[in-house]
Design a protein around this nucleic acid. Structure first.
Lengths: 216, 216
DNA sequence: AAGCGTGTGTGAAATATTTCTCAATATGTA
DNA sequence: TACATATTGAGAAATATTTCACACACGCTT
């Protein structure tokens, strides 16, 4: 059933399914089931089936799913049957780690250009890539038609740099800066801020009060 | 109204509110409103008010919220009115970047110990911290009563190391390894996998087909 | 070829989450 | 003081998301 519009939360789970399926294939596993996949991921089998049903019928009753086939399908759905070029902005510790991270190349993305505004860093090489000056962002991104940028810069500069990369044609931004960004409707933004994760978890830590032990 | 149990999704937004409020204070802003905060974060004012109403009445009708007061309240709710010690496992690029990241210290967390199993790295210093051997994890974490661990290790080792830190008493894990972890009920896990973010966004990129242009 | 165990896809029901509204209250101004 | 404007907190309504439950189908065994 091609639905009018798939819930965003469903889309956000597909990469997680893909990740688990890839592990299965690497272990030589050819077939799986929604139950098994759900157990590995800590979610219900019904949810997995419902999620997949938005895009078609990929399983076989009584049997389950062919792992490789499902990977192919999910990759197509997510437009991962091509390689995406990514720009990294900022060559500090985070930009450095991102640029060298092998996990991108393995899963459809290639960091193909990195920028910094610090003259000390411009011209140096990270993972074989020369750090270019930030003033070149618009020119280079347009030339290479790069649509994805990762921001590894301080919060103070994040909005300004965002405006720049959007101007350069970027339509997806993954920001490591701890600040909410304003972008036009046609641009997607995701955030990675480890501190917000930690701060949510500490809510539950406290002094481990037993929630069941409340009087009455 | 103290509810029986606050939705997890509400808790996950509080750190984001806190982040925005901190920026306001730093700019000297003393008062804000749900409307203004929502605009800065791209969410509705009603949602912010509803979220906060789970914990009490922090605003004043007609006026809004005292920024500093709200920060204090949110910090208490999230148990951030203390400093949390964090252990980093893995001293590769990511572990390195995490350990040096200033953003933790500023927001309630202190990386106070780092481990690696590579003899080449054990004994070296990162940000003034000596890298300890992974075999010391249980001993050191128990001694210091550390309850939060960040995993910056390859996926293959992640489950084993998770079991180790859980054994050592850790109750919150932030994992950078691209794999879903199994933990006992009393342990919280958050994941940071930049690739899943990118893969969700590429769903929307495609060749920018206009969704309105479907025939019929 | 019939019976059994397994597992999908899906409508319906149950929950969860967000948005809508508006009475109540605060501030500023004339 | 009266009035205009702003903004909260919360019940109700609207949406969104998850879970339930089961008909249907596949593969294996006998």
């Amino acid at each position: 059933m091609s639905d009018n519009s798939i819930p965003k939360i469903v889309i956000s789970r597909l990469p997680v399914y893909l990740r688990a399926l890839s592990r299965m294939i690497n272990k030589g596993q050819l077939v799986t089931s929604s139950h098994e996949l759900g157990k590995a991921l800590g979610i219900s089998s019904a949810q997995i089936r419902k999620d997949l049903s938005h895009f078609g019928e990929f399983g076989k009753q009584g049997t389950g799913y062919q792992v490789e086939f499902l990977i192919t399908q999910l990759s197509q759905i997510l437009n991962l049957d091509r390689e995406w070029e990514v720009a990294v902005i900022g060559s500090g510790d985070i930009g450095h780690a991102i640029t060298r991270y092998q996990g991108f190349a393995d899963r459809g993305f290639r960091v193909s250009v990195i920028f910094d505004s610090d003259p000390q860093k411009v011209g140096s090489y990270i993972n074989g890539l020369e750090v270019m000056h930030a003033s070149q962002i618009v020119k280079v991104l347009r030339e290479r038609n790069i649509q994805i940028a990762m921001l590894a810069i301080p919060a103070e500069y994040a909005q300004k740099v965002t405006d720049t990369v959007v101007d350069a044609g970027v339509r997806a931004i993954l920001s490591y800066a701890p600040i909410s960004l304003n972008v036009p409707d046609h641009v997607r933004v995701s955030y990675i801020d480890p501190v917000t994760h930690l701060q949510s978890m500490t809510y539950y830590l406290s002094t481990e009060q037993d929630l069941m032990s409340q009087p009455l």
